[in-house]
């Protein structure tokens, strides 16, 4: 190996260390007895987990998070798939504007989106409800679902659908027996990813949630009080949940690719 290669790898390693340091640290601190951790570490404990999970409001927040994530996943995956299919199949006059509508939300600062949602949902009387959070999260998660489904559709031979029509399938039947089965892995991974997006989002949720706090909103509120390593414990559990969803999504995408 050349010197340049080694240097490159060392640099890359250092960058990964920086990116993953807080994730790893939070995991380590969650099992560490010190309230203000430093080196050398204190002793091993599961105390923070016990304390965090004995709070009834955490369980309530978990319930809220799961309900919101599940609804968001279903809604945004449906809208995302419909949009991806429209982009794949049709050309029309206002398509650039249509696609901008699909892809712009992630570029909007979350604080602004949170304020806009809060103001508008208050007008509709939905502020402070779980429905309000689902609405906001669906706006945020739809572009991700759209991107995944579009990627899958772009791997599809466009004549497949026409072949189905040629064999006597109507539009809906072709969708049911050709397009949907082909996109199935993408749809499942879109469900996982959009659920993960919703499960982690806290700024917009903080603006619109009111008393129906989700888990990340609860972390935010604990953090506004004082330093409390329970956050590490809750954070680690949230991380593991999201990662299972992401890995499941990746697995589905890649496994399918090997078969093709």
């Amino acid at each position: 190996m050349k010197a340049g290669d080694i240097l490159g790898r060392v640099y890359l390693g250092a960058l990964f260390c920086f990116v993953f340091a807080p994730i790893a640290a939070s995991f380590v601190f969650s099992f560490n007895s010190d309230r203000f951790p430093t080196l050398p570490l204190g002793h091993f404990t599961t105390d923070w987990y016990v304390r965090a999970f004995s709070r009834p409001e955490l369980w309530q927040a978990i319930g809220n998070s799961i309900a919101v994530a599940a609804m968001t996943a279903l809604l945004s995956t449906f809208i995302g798939f419909a949009t991806a299919y429209t982009d794949f199949r049709y050309g029309f006059r206002f398509k650039p504007a249509y696609l901008a509508l699909a892809l712009l939300p992630p570029t909007m600062p979350l604080v602004i989106l949170g304020l806009a949602m809060l103001a508008w949902l208050s007008q509709l009387g939905l502020s402070g409800t779980r429905v309000g959070i689902v609405i906001a999260h669906t706006v945020l998660a739809t572009p991700f679902a759209m991107a995944i489904c579009r990627l899958r559709l772009s791997q599809m031979d466009p004549t497949l659908e026409a072949a189905a029509w040629n064999l006597g399938a109507g539009q809906w039947t072709a969708m049911r027996y050709v397009i949907l089965p082909f996109c199935a892995p993408a749809i499942v991974s879109a469900l996982c990813l959009t659920a993960a997006v919703s499960f982690d989002e806290f700024i917009v949720a903080w603006f619109v949630s009111g008393l129906n706090r989700t888990v990340p909103v609860m972390i935010l509120e604990i953090l506004q009080g004082n330093v409390d390593p329970q956050i590490n414990a809750i954070g680690t559990v949230v991380f593991l949940t999201s990662m299972s969803l992401v890995i499941a999504a990746q697995f589905l995408i890649f496994r399918r690719r090997h078969h093709d």
Partner: peptide
């Protein structure tokens, strides 16, 4: 990292 709470990561940096 996109699927880990940025809040928790910020808190870890605080520590």
């Amino acid at each position: 990292p996109f699927f880990t709470s940025f809040l928790v990561r910020a808190y870890a940096w605080q520590v």
